[in-house]
Design a protein around this nucleic acid. Structure first.
Lengths: 146, 146
DNA sequence: TCCACATAGACAAGCTGGTTGACGAGTTAT
DNA sequence: ATAACTCGTCAACCAGCTTGTCTATGTGGA
């Protein structure tokens, strides 16, 4: 009956492996200057309409930290800052072509990792698993947890 | 057919929530000076027979970083360094009574979080979920991933 | 219309948790 | 006996975040 502790460990192990696999693959595909944490920023920026302050809230950090992250991503060529159409103070963040390429690489890596799991479990069981997880996982932004 | 990206997000969200919940509960129970990362150290130390170098390998960091972590946990009263029975260079790490209390608090918090999930899914479905996850999750130490 | 207040982002300083590198003391293998 | 390795420590440094302050711009009520 002590599945509980096991289950916690399993969830942590699984997410750790997922992050690690995506990171490794993305690195190998020529985006070695990106770290796992960047993915969470890409997720928000790719959704569109994000300012630095939006990003800060999404990531759960101060806007200074977000600004620093954006600065880094701009310098590395993944993100650009456009003038905001309605607010002269703000700058609209957008992915560059390189940024989109990195995002696609990460998505594909995630799909590949999941595909392996899907194969292990079989289609039926995998579908049930997704259904179950959907009922458990909280809504809201995905962000680094520790 | 695009469960794949969803699934990744779900796993990350779930583990994030788990970590967050455990951390919050443990903090409230009087261990506010512990952070999620400490849990991974406690896991190794509570298993027994750990030296600082062992801990470093478990956590995947340098031994200097592990030594610093141990120093902090000793200062806060969670860990003690005992002489090593067979090796005069090494020191055996052990949890203090307080360290064990914190470990129990974290375990209980994990159980509580999982219990909530178990209730949502029902006993049967939960059992299947654990079985599935066991087939997917890698072996080896649980460590912070990003 | 004006003004008090809120918000976006920049600048600066400082902290924390990690890194690399070098070392003395102790252990192990040749 | 000695060469090579390992445990833990000291020191310097760095990355990524924090708090605090500031200017420019936007917003809403008297």
């Amino acid at each position: 009956m002590d599945d509980a502790l096991d289950f916690s460990a399993l969830v942590l192990a699984l997410s750790g492996q997922l992050v690690q696999e995506i990171h490794t693959t993305v690195s190998q595909q020529g985006f070695a200057d990106l770290r796992p944490a960047h993915g969470f920023a890409f997720a928000r920026i790719s959704a569109g309409g994000a300012t630095t302050a939006d990003l800060a809230e999404h990531l759960g950090v101060t806007k200074q930290a977000a600004a620093q992250l954006v600065e880094e991503l701009v310098r590395k060529g993944y993100v650009e800052r456009l003038p905001h159409p309605h607010d002269a103070r703000a700058r609209l963040l957008a992915l560059t072509a390189t940024g989109w390429a990195a995002t696609r690489a990460a998505d594909q890596a995630a799909r590949a990792a999941v595909a392996a799991w899907r194969e292990v479990l079989g289609e039926t069981r995998f579908g049930e698993l997704v259904t179950d997880l959907r009922r458990l996982a909280p809504r809201g932004p995905i962000r680094p947890a520790w």
